[in-house]
């Protein structure tokens, strides 16, 4: 456990020792800031019956944040260490493959959640500005953050996996971005095109990230959504561990 903690601390520290961390935080601040302006407009236009997190979710900024920042947050995790050679130094200490994978994942997820913290400030500011306390139900905000965490976990695991595959952080970021946006598109209004066979629609709806997040933003915890994120994240981490381990395959 203390090895794990040392690794997580190092991962988190690396974000703040380099510009990457600050650039990502700045980007998220900018995007949630735009979201804030957008939200003020929406709340002003009509007294909305739905919670503010759902309103925010309906702006495009939520997915912009997730899809754009997750590859940048995770791209360095394995690739940069391989390129710098520190990976060899790391893997010749008595640490386990799982320890390394989970620590890198945990570090990335912790940083991702950190970038979402200002969003709480945005919500607080909105409440002050609009005075509509009813829109800021704490449980709904909490469930929204649960959704943010679960979606983030999936994307961080995907990014770690992409990063483990290569020595180049640019390639890692691109692969993570393409897979990420592919996964997102897969479930983006599957019934809209009219081209898909009818049996495919319910399947795609089940993996529809946008549907899941919509429910979370409304304050609904749906069991199968949670299970979906946990299993998908676990699967990606498992694949990452296999990639890390493959170095020792004969």
């Amino acid at each position: 456990m203390r090895v794990f903690m040392a690794l997580v601390r190092r991962e988190l520290g690396a974000y703040f020792n380099s510009l990457t961390g600050y650039v990502v935080i700045a980007a998220v601040l900018l995007l949630t800031g735009f979201g804030l302006v957008d939200l003020i407009e929406r709340i002003r236009q009509m007294p909305y019956p739905s919670p503010v997190t759902e309103l925010f979710y309906q702006t495009t900024y939520f997915w912009l944040v997730v899809l754009l920042t997750s590859p940048v947050i995770t791209m360095r995790s394995f690739a940069a260490e391989k390129a710098a050679g520190t990976y060899e130094a790391l893997m010749t200490t008595p640490v386990g493959d799982w320890q390394v994978v989970l620590a890198k994942f945990a570090g990335a997820l912790a940083f991702y959640l950190l970038t979402w913290l200002p969003f709480l400030g945005v919500l607080f500011a909105l409440r002050q500005i609009t005075g509509e306390a009813a829109l800021f139900e704490p449980t709904i905000v909490a469930v929204t953050f649960l959704g943010i965490t679960l979606v983030g976990g999936l994307f961080m695991a995907l990014g770690c996996f992409a990063s483990a595959l290569t020595r180049s952080d640019i390639i890692a970021a691109m692969v993570a971005f393409l897979f990420g946006i592919g996964l997102w598109m897969l479930g983006y209004r599957p019934d809209a095109s009219g081209l898909l066979p009818t049996w495919a629609i319910p399947v795609l709806e089940h993996v529809s990230l946008t549907r899941h997040m919509e429910d979370f933003a409304r304050g609904l915890v749906v069991g199968r959504h949670v299970v979906f994120y946990l299993t998908a994240t676990w699967l990606l981490l498992f694949l990452t561990q296999r990639v890390v381990q493959s170095r020792r395959w004969k």
């Binding site: 190092r10 710098a84 050679g85 130094a89 010749t92």
Partner: peptide, 13 residues
């Protein structure tokens, strides 16, 4: 105690 080739270190630490 192993020092790999080119002595890789975390330069930011």
């Amino acid at each position: 105690g192993y020092m790999p080739e080119n002595n890789p270190l975390h330069l930011d630490m």
